[in-house]
Structure formats: C-alpha cells, structure tokens
Amino acid sequence: MIAPAGSVDRIAAALHANGLVLRGGFNFTTGNAPPTGSSGAPAAAVLLVGQAGAAPWPYFLRWRGQQPQAIANPLDTWSREVIGAVAEAFGARAVSPSDRPYLPFQQWAMRAEGLKPSPLGILMHPQYGLWHAYRGALLFEDELPIQAGETAPHLCDSCVEKPCLKSCPADAYSAQGFAYQSCLTHVRGAGGSPCRSGGCLDRNACPYGTEYRYPPEVQAFHMASFARATN
C-alpha cells in the first residue's frame, strides 16, 4: 500500500512549524531488515527529520523556558516531543539517533540524501556544509511516494587545503579517525576555552555552508553537552 500523495508535504509543514525539516527518505526494499513501525509490523518507509543551520533554536529555547532545569538532555527531549507529535498525527513511529539499540541513522541519511562523510565524520551537505543535523526519523508501515536521493557533489573531494584537519589544538581529527578522549580532555581543560565558547575549531574552519553556521551560543550549548559526557 502507498500513502496518499501530499502526505509528505503535510508532514514537512508540520515539522516546519518548529524549525525542523524533512531530510529525505526512502522505501525499504527486500533484504533491508527494517525496524518496526507503530504497530510492530516491519516498517515500509522512513523519513529523516533534521535541521538546516540553527533554525530550530528559537523554538527549542521557548520550550526550554517552560521546563524543569534538571532535564539531562533537553534538546533530545524537545526533539522527541516534536517529532513524536508529528508521528502520532500521521500514523508513524518516531525514533531518535540516541535510541538503544542504535539504529543506522547515518546509513539512512547517506541513502536518503546521497551524502558522504567529511574528514570530521559529519556528513557533508552540498548546501549546508557541516551545519546540519538529524534529530529523528519517522517510520511508516505503508510505502510513501518518495525515492532515495541521487549522490550529491562531495565538496571535500575538491577541498585541497583541508583546514578542518589543521585547526584543532589537540589534533583530535586525523586520517586515523577521531581521538575522542584527547578532544574531551582538551575541551575540559584550561586551554579549551575557545572550543567551549565558540565550538569545534576544526568544524568552524570548513569553508562550506558558512551562512548556515550555528551561532556561538548554539555551538557553546553543544560543546557543553559534549564536555559533560562520561568516559
């Protein structure tokens, strides 16, 4: 069964009311072993939900001002509430990147939008650069009138200087991957003040999508969450 045409547009409009955007999707095929939908049957389709730039920030702050200060992961909680309400309205199951066991969000995103990872591991978007994120997904038990995106131009291939690998004081990113503990130690330490107040220096060094760059207060919020992480 295929969902009515126009349903994807209505879902996009409902998400846009909170600054979120649809980030593509696809119908699962035989052999995908999809997760379950709202009734427990295998999902037939997935829509990725995320953000471009910091568009959701004002909506999140308005919600945050009405919540107890002790919420451990407020942005995750807000995202679950917003995406969950849309899922309920359209007969879908909402899932989050932080759900356990983890779902293959990055693989879904690469398939949905045709993106590839940057040297920092963040998917490089041809318009948003590194300034985007995935906040959740909607799983449907009926097919949707959608198809996976074509492979997007990978801007990292034409970037010769790779400033994203030269700006971190702790050399956290390299061809060997992300040195998580080195980054965390630096951010928490006395020399990590620029990172804590303005965000990851490697990420900010990327020349693409700068018009979507998160404002310093948004980057500081995310870095504070990272600094609180347990080893």
Rank of each mutant, 00 (worst) to 15 (best):
A3K: 01
P4M: 10
V8R: 05
V8T: 11
D9S: 14
I11D: 09
A14G: 00
A17Y: 03
L20H: 03
G25H: 11
F28C: 06
T30H: 07
A33M: 03
T36G: 09
S38E: 08
S38Y: 01
S38F: 11
P42D: 08
A43F: 08
A45L: 02
L48C: 13
Q51N: 15
G53I: 13
W57A: 08
W57R: 09
Y59Q: 13
L61R: 15
R62I: 04
R62L: 12
A72C: 04
P74F: 04
L75Y: 09
L75H: 12
L75D: 05
T77F: 00
E81T: 10
V82H: 02
A85C: 04
V86N: 11
A89I: 02
A89Y: 07
G91W: 03
G91C: 13
S98K: 04
S98N: 04
D99N: 05
D99S: 07
P101A: 10
L103Q: 10
L103E: 04
F105D: 02
R111C: 12
R111S: 08
P119L: 13
I122Q: 15
M124W: 00
H125Y: 09
Y128V: 01
W131T: 05
G136S: 02
G136K: 06
L138V: 03
L139M: 07
L144Y: 02
I146S: 07
Q147G: 14
A148G: 13
E150M: 14
E150I: 01
T151Q: 14
P153Y: 05
E161P: 00
K162R: 12
P163Y: 10
P163V: 08
C164Y: 03
L165A: 03
K166L: 15
P169G: 06
P169N: 04
D171Y: 01
A172V: 10
A175F: 11
G177R: 13
A179T: 02
Y180L: 04
Q181W: 12
Q181F: 12
S182F: 01
H186K: 08
R188Q: 14
R188D: 09
P194D: 04
P194V: 04
C195W: 01
R196M: 11
C200P: 05
R203P: 05
P207I: 12
Y208L: 08
Y208K: 05
Y212M: 03
P216G: 12
P216Q: 01
Q219L: 15
A220N: 03
M223R: 01
M223N: 05
A224H: 07
S225K: 08
A227G: 14
A229C: 07
T230D: 07
T230Q: 11
N231C: 10
